[in-house]
C-alpha cells in the first residue's frame, strides 16, 4: 500500500530531523507515564476500576475521532503541498485545526465537570493520574495547534512548494505524535479494567 505521506523511500523521516529527536523525547516521557499508571493500578485495582466508571466515555470517543480525523486531514495537507496545491494545503490544515479545537472544547467540558464536582489532583490516586496525564496531553494538543496554525499561515503566504515543504512535514510529524499518544491513552484510562 502506498502512503500519501511519503513520496519515495529513503533513510530519513519527513520533516526536520530535529523535530524527530524532540518527538522521541516526548514519546519517552509519555511511555514512562503510561507505565507508572499501569503499575500503580496493580496496587489499587478496585479504586481505579471504580473511578474509571465516572469518566465520560462518549466524550473520549468524540475526542479520539477528532484527533484521528485531524491527523488524516494533515496527511491530506502534506499530499496537497506535494502537488503544489497551496490553497488545498491551507484548507486541510484549517480542517485539522477545527478538529483540534473540537478536542479542546470537549476535554475542557470534561475538566469543568470534574472541577464542579470538587475533584482535584489530590482526590485520589486515580484522579491524580487521570488529570495529570490528560492535561499533559492537552498541553501538547495546544502546542500542536499553534505549530499547525503557523504552518497554515506560511502556506497561505506561498512559502511552501512541491520542492520545498519541510515546514509542513515537520508540523505534520509533531501533530501525528500528539495523536499517537492519545491512541494509547484512550483505551488505557477510559476502557481497560
Amino acid at each position: 500500500m502506498q502512503t500519501d505521506a511519503v513520496v519515495e523511500s529513503g533513510k530519513y523521516p519527513p520533516g526536520d530531523l530535529a523535530i524527530w529527536v524532540f518527538i522521541l523525547a516526548e514519546l519517552g516521557a509519555f511511555a514512562a507515564f503510561f507505565g507508572s499508571y499501569a503499575f500503580t493500578r496493580m496496587k489499587n485495582v478496585e479504586l481505579f476500576n471504580h473511578y474509571q466508571m465516572t469518566l465520560d466515555k462518549d466524550a473520549a470517543l468524540i475526542n479520539t475521532f477528532a484527533l484521528i480525523t485531524s491527523s488524516y486531514f494533515v496527511v491530506r495537507a502534506v499530499a496537497a503541498i506535494r502537488d503544489s496545491d497551496s490553497r488545498g494545503c491551507v484548507r486541510w490544515l484549517v480542517a485539522a485545526l477545527v478538529m483540534g479545537a473540537i478536542f479542546l472544547v470537549v476535554k475542557s467540558q470534561e475538566y469543568a465537570h470534574h472541577i464542579g464536582e470538587g475533584i482535584t489532583l489530590s482526590t485520589n490516586t486515580f484522579y491524580m493520574f487521570y488529570l495529570s496525564l490528560t492535561f499533559f496531553h492537552f498541553m501538547h494538543v495546544i502546542m500542536g495547534m499553534v505549530i499547525l496554525a503557523a504552518v497554515a499561515v506560511k502556506a497561505k503566504r506561498g512559502c511552501y512548494s512541491a520542492e520545498q515543504h519541510t515546514g509542513v512535514e515537520t508540523g505534520a510529524s509533531y501533530w501525528h505524535m500528539v495523536d499517537l499518544v492519545w491512541l494509547i491513552l484512550f483505551p488505557l484510562v477510559y476502557v481497560m479494567r
Binding site: 502512503t3 500519501d4 505521506a5 511519503v6 519515495e8 523511500s9 529513503g10 523521516p13 495523536d179
Partner: peptide, 10 residues
C-alpha cells in the same frame, strides 16, 4: 506507517 510515512524508510 501510513500517516507519519515511516513505512517506506529503511
Amino acid at each position: 506507517d501510513y500517516f507519519m510515512g515511516l513505512k517506506r524508510l529503511s
